[in-house]
Design a protein around this nucleic acid. Structure first.
Lengths: 124, 124, 124, 124
DNA sequence: GTGGTCTAGACCACC
DNA sequence: GTGGTCTAGACCACG
């Protein structure tokens, strides 16, 4: 799968990498249970520091998206093991903030829900 | 209005402050056109440095949420002058990512849209 | 003549006022030798502090565009008494900087001179 | 390259620094894609605070002249990525004002265009 | 080692 | 009195 990183973004690279991998899992580009490349090989492919990839993996691991095994390396968790979206209040706060910005921008509830529905479907 | 800041968060304080103020405008706690406290008084209230508040104000100004008038100080913009939520692709990407996380967490489209609708109404 | 001021601009109001008056003289809306309104009346018209108008008048006076007489009030100088554009190095530096920005923006010398020529003619 | 700063000027130091760097890029003293010194080293060289240099860099970044890459630090953008000079109406207004001042100073259109041409070539 | 953030305190331009 | 600017110094996130 293709991972897009923007090195001039204010968002840390390891967070972008984490996001890209979650997107990949959600879109099916990364299958449940699929083996992920090693830290070093992915770092070499992306042209980033190995520590950056390592931090992204650790973040995904701590959130329950992937699992690291000493012997078998790193792999995407099974479908039933994915973390609950509302487990961390962070996500909810982000959603509320986005809804606020949309409402202030003149979007009605229906228009906003249309955007949300599109986002749910989107296979980008 | 009550502004909640988390000094242990990795999110910069001035960004949190910006978010809180946008939320306040959206929820009606801050009225359109309402005068905002001066940089120094708000800084004193929150127990942060004046420059931190100043950065938040400048950010909000650059995004079109508030306006600082040489004569009258800083005030919330009028309802019709609020920025368009989708003008920066950042928001859309965040929404897509949240939708992905929800889907992976087992939420159906309907359940996710329910959450979005609640967020729009602000049932936090 | 109509003086346009932008109170949310970063440019100080008294500088904007000075610029507007110079523009007025250049465009003929203010005739050479014409009497200017008093500080107080202009301040009232524009809705600004009298001190702001006073500073603008002082600036114009120091630069040689207008002349203040105790008895006759303030008036535009005669045509032959206007200050030399290159007398202060500030103007030249600004022009060079604008030329640089234009060149970097991809404008050829001819295109830039076209803009300069238009600016010279412009009766806005 | 030599950066000239006037600490007695009313123009903020970080704006002067921004202007000097744009001039440097325009004159070729700073090559397209060239690496810029770090915030701290430049601050030390100039005898100013690091935050002042940081603000200048951020300003240049927001205007599209330079780009700060998480991995490689700060560098001048490529030739084709320079911002369009006329995208902000500010520049045009400045040019019109300069033209007015020149006209009032007795410069004919031809004389003014000669000055503009010299400025384009940088015969400072 | 790099830039980003924050503080405390000071000065100044502007209104 | 207001915001904008600047300083010196500290800490932290990032790579």
């Amino acid at each position: 799968m293709i991972l897009e990183l923007d090195f001039k973004s204010s968002l840390p690279v390891y967070v972008q990498l984490r996001n890209e991998i979650v997107r990949g899992i959600g879109s099916g580009e990364l299958a449940f249970g699929e083996q992920l490349p090693t830290v070093r090989s992915l770092a070499a492919d992306l042209g980033v520091n190995a520590m950056t990839v390592s931090k992204a993996y650790q973040l995904l691991d701590s959130q329950g998206y992937i699992r690291t095994d000493r012997r078998r390396g790193t792999a995407v968790c099974a479908r039933g093991e994915m973390p609950d979206f509302l487990e961390n209040p962070q996500s909810r706060k982000e959603l509320v903030l986005l809804a606020r910005e949309a409402a202030l921008g003149g979007y009605s509830r229906e228009e906003f829900l249309k955007l949300c529905s599109d986002a749910y479907t989107e296979l980008t």
